[in-house]
Design a protein around this nucleic acid. Structure first.
Length: 383
RNA sequence: GGGUAGGUGCCCGAGUGGCUAAAGGGAGCAGACUGUAAAUCUGCCGUCUAACGACUACGAUGGUUCGAAUCCGUCCCUGCCCA
């Protein structure tokens, strides 16, 4: 099948006992089987991995970050390269985040105003102003398939007043995002450019009343998918699950739901159980660079002495390129010797692990045995 | 042979009378990491002890001193320079 010009989401199967669902999300750069885990490549690279290695993880879609790409190398260059797919020579679906997360993660380096956010470049102190309109322009120039609304991700903890303010601003900004996005899309469509899908983002921190209100406002916008943001900012696991449980059912059922910034193997299962279709997280790649790897039986640290002469693969149940070719002892040695390839091998494994976990989850849903599968995964993860 | 600079904990290296079990690195051991300012950060790291604490330590040895890695004597060893 050739590339489609638009987006569509097909719900293939719903779990009878939980909110879990399996679907197929079509984008101009190809189909995505949901539930799905999306690796993060902030700077238009999944850290330590080549394009071939990303593909070898089984990734069907990857992220990049528009704020970081705007700073470096600048969106003009990526536009001249023919868009981010050509820039990276990665021709599967892509998604860019808006810079909204940087409102949270770079809290000490920015000032929020009604019109937008003023950031200080951590590298050189240069000031950059990002508004909903500018974020849309940047993300259109970069050209990912899915682009995200410019939101205000509130911290945790966060008092109700603050959370409400951030949420309402996110809603006002959303209106401006859609307006800008639609205007840009008109001229681009006329020029024959591929369509981009703008996903709005639910905020409201950890207050039920705000989350419900936000879910309703966000759902009132016509979109190809809907995201839940503002979780995994330091809150306890139960709070995240509670928010997802509360919010997911309030989002349009016939569209993909994306839980932003999540997460661990158990987080993914718990998200799927509550009706989430898409996840992204830096955890598999960051942990990989720091020596931690996922296994069927929980996280392990490859640098540890216990693996010094362990000639078995990272996970006996894994068929990723790393596990097919290398032993724990060898990878431990690479870390001990500060060889970057250790990070590469663990990144491939960790990403593959989460993608494969979602693949198996999808099969379990399609075969009507999600609950048993989920229980088994969680038990094995030791939680 | 003469001159000169040195010998500090696993390694490198600060420290020139008490605040020194001894700065700071590295190595080692363990942990954290959730829309990436992160190949980063944190803890431990002489011996014994769960801990309080005790003991042993700055080349060796003998002194001075209430007190020495730090001052003095002798010896051993190392780098560099001159013969």
């Amino acid at each position: 099948m050739g590339a489609q010009q638009t987006f569509s989401f097909q719900l293939l199967k719903k779990c009878g006992a939980t909110k879990a669902r399996a679907g197929l999300f079509s984008t101009p750069h190809g189909d995505i089987e949901t539930p799905i885990f999306m690796p993060v490549g902030t700077n238009s690279v999944v850290k330590t991995l080549t394009k071939e290695q990303i593909e070898a993880t089984g990734a069907q879609i990857i992220l990049a970050n528009s704020y970081h790409l705007y700073l470096k190398p600048g969106t003009e260059l990526i536009k001249r390269a023919g868009g981010v797919h050509n820039w990276m020579n990665f021709h599967k679906p892509m998604l860019t985040d808006s810079g909204g997360f940087q409102v949270f993660s770079l809290a000490d380096l920015r000032k929020i105003k009604e019109d937008g956010v003023k950031f200080s470049d951590p590298k050189n102190g240069n000031k950059h102003f990002i508004s909903p309109e500018i974020s849309m322009q940047i993300q259109h120039d970069i050209g990912a398939d899915i682009i995200m609304a410019f939101d205000e991700c509130a911290p945790y903890p966060c008092d109700w007043e603050h959370a409400k303010g951030a949420m309402e601003r996110t809603h006002r900004w959303l209106e401006r995002c859609f307006k800008a996005h639609n205007e840009l899309s008109v001229t681009e469509r006329a020029a024959g450019r591929l369509e981009q899908a703008l996903f709005p983002i639910v905020q409201g921190a950890f207050y039920d009343d705000l989350r419900v209100e936000s879910a309703k406002v966000i759902s009132s916008f016509e979109a190809h998918g809907y995201a839940i943001g503002g979780v995994s900012v330091g809150e306890p696991l139960e709070m995240k699950n509670h928010v997802v449980e509360l919010v997911a059912p309030l989002l349009p059922e016939n569209k993909p739901r994306y839980l932003m910034g999540v997460g661990t193997p158990v987080d993914l299962i718990e998200g799927v159980r509550r009706g989430i279709d898409m996840f992204d997280c830096v955890l598999p790649t960051r942990n990989a660079r720091h020596g931690t790897f996922f296994t069927t039986y929980g996280n392990k640290i490859v640098k540890n002495k216990e693996f010094e002469d362990d000639f078995s693969p990272l996970d006996e149940n894994c068929d990723c390129p790393t596990c097919k070719n290398h032993t724990k002892a060898y990878i431990r040695h690479l870390f001990k010797a500060s060889e970057v390839t250790g990070a590469t091998l663990l990144s491939i494994h960790n990403i593959h692990f989460l993608i494969n976990l979602m693949k198996q989850t999808r099969v379990a849903i399609l075969e009507g045995r999600f609950e048993e599968f989920a229980a088994e995964v969680i038990k094995n993860q030791g939680l």
